[in-house]
């Protein structure tokens, strides 16, 4: 980390680099945020799975005429 080792104006730039390092780590989630995100992800997965099953079952119900609909 060449930039961090060079003193600039008598102040080590290592201090100024702190926010930059945080940015490199990205957004760090708290435990509560991770739990909330996990529960939301599971709900989305279940909903999408149900939608796939619904389309599959409706295709079986409608048979070859699945795309034939009034208006």
């Amino acid at each position: 980390m060449g930039r961090a080792d060079r003193p600039v104006g008598g102040v080590s730039i290592g201090v100024a680099m702190e926010p930059e390092r945080k940015d490199e780590q990205g957004v760090v989630l708290t435990e509560a945020q991770k739990r909330a995100r996990r529960s939301r992800s599971i709900a989305i997965a279940l909903a999408l799975g149900a939608l796939v099953l619904l389309f599959y079952a409706m295709t079986l119900v409608k048979g070859p005429g699945v795309l034939v609909r009034p208006l």
Binding site: L29, S39, A43
Partner: peptide
């Protein structure tokens, strides 16, 4: 900000 919203909130 990362969300704290739960499935119940939605």
């Amino acid at each position: 900000e990362p969300s704290l919203a739960t499935v119940g909130d939605y």
